[in-house]
Simulated assay, not measured.
Amino acid sequence: MSAPKQHLSRQRQRQPELEQDYARTTTLGYEAPADTGLVRCIAHGFPTPLARWHFHDEYELHLITATSGKAFVGDWIGPFQPGHLVLCGPRLPHNWISMDMPEGGVPERDLVIQFLHGPIAHAAEQIPEMAEVMALLERARLGVEFFGLSDRAVQHFHAVKAARGFQRLAAFCAYLSDLARCTDFRQLSSVRMQGEEDDAANDQVNALVNRIMRDYAHPLSAGELALELGMSESRFSRFFRRATGNTFTDFVNRIRVNRAGQLLMETDRPVTHICYEVGFNNAANFNRRFLEIKGVTPSEFRRQADHRFGGPPQT
């Protein structure tokens, strides 16, 4: 009788867990508190209680060294294999589920570094050279995957873990520097706004994005927004694309699809209901746009998302 109850429990679980400090024990691969300052290193195998759909206040720099499977970062679902390197921002839910684990598991799968935003942000206020690191951390808010750095990432992790005091901070900064200078990366969870050069343009872009984020479920017209800003529609289209990297229609579709992905992950609402709830006016267009942006249909996305808790797929 216990197995069905556990199955139902997994079906009801939709929200990520908040990782608490009391759970961060050395038996799970964490360093002893006396050995940490700004930087905390974790090395662990799989399976492990740490592999679950969860979030925490720290950034997490996560390197996979063994096995392959599915990664879940915010509303992004994708494959991973050894060398997969991701920087997750604070409170961004994430999990990695191995699909090819050998019998008995693996002793080491994850090399992880966690660190808080505050100390780095305060230091950056006084140290101009840290500007590139702050840009990196801003990108990480929605998850960043890096390519071509896996070998150096392993070296960096072990250098940080082996060091203490200021030498550890120096090793950690060297790691961040390589990430900040890496140009081969991709955002994972959602669209990220690109800043304009002047404050007035930034204010306009922020206002536009806030408006879209607030009203995404309602009809949105580029022409109406252009009129509100005192622009022609063609000028508005150029301005919007330069600011966000997307056409207005593509940006709105991405916001709607990302919200749909969240609802598919966190609720049991029918796909057709979610379609209209996020602002699409017909199911065929919703399915087409979702497939273009996420690479899978809404139903398949929900099916894959149920793996993020580590249990068997839901039926």
Score class of each variant (00 low, 15 high):
M1P: 08
M1W: 08
M1Y: 06
A3N: 13
L8K: 13
R10P: 00
R10A: 13
Q11S: 10
R12K: 11
P16D: 08
P16R: 02
L18G: 05
Q20W: 11
D21Q: 12
Y22I: 14
R24N: 07
T25G: 05
T25V: 10
E31T: 10
P33G: 09
T36I: 14
V39M: 01
R40T: 15
R40E: 14
F46E: 10
F46P: 04
P47V: 06
P49C: 03
A51I: 01
W53M: 01
W53I: 00
H56D: 07
D57L: 13
E58L: 06
E60A: 08
H62P: 06
T65H: 05
S68P: 07
S68A: 14
G69N: 05
A71K: 03
G78L: 09
Q81R: 12
G83E: 08
L87Q: 02
R91P: 03
R91G: 08
S98Y: 05
P102W: 03
E103Q: 09
E108I: 14
R109N: 06
D110P: 05
Q114G: 10
F115R: 07
H117N: 12
G118F: 08
A121G: 07
E125G: 10
Q126Y: 10
I127Y: 09
I127W: 01
P128W: 03
M130K: 01
M130V: 05
M130N: 00
V133A: 06
A135E: 15
A135N: 14
E138S: 11
E138L: 12
R139D: 11
R139I: 05
A140Y: 02
L142M: 10
G143D: 03
V144G: 02
E145M: 10
G148D: 03
G148M: 06
V154Q: 12
H156F: 12
F157K: 03
H158E: 13
K161E: 15
A162T: 06
A170V: 13
Y175R: 04
L179H: 07
A180V: 06
S190H: 11
E197H: 13
D198T: 12
D199Y: 11
N206T: 15
A207S: 13
L208Y: 09
L208K: 03
N210I: 00
R214Y: 12
H218F: 12
S221E: 09
E224I: 12
A226G: 02
G230M: 07
E233T: 15
E233F: 00
S234Y: 07
R235P: 04
R235A: 14
S237L: 01
F239G: 08
F239P: 06
F239T: 09
R241D: 06
N246F: 15
T247H: 01
T249P: 00
D250P: 03
I255V: 15
I255A: 08
R259D: 00
A260E: 02
D268E: 14
P270W: 04
V271P: 01
Y276V: 02
N287E: 09
L291K: 14
I293A: 04
P298E: 01
P298L: 01
P298Y: 09
S299P: 00
E300W: 12
R303G: 05
D306T: 15
D306E: 11
H307T: 11
F309H: 10
P312C: 02
Q314K: 11
T315N: 14
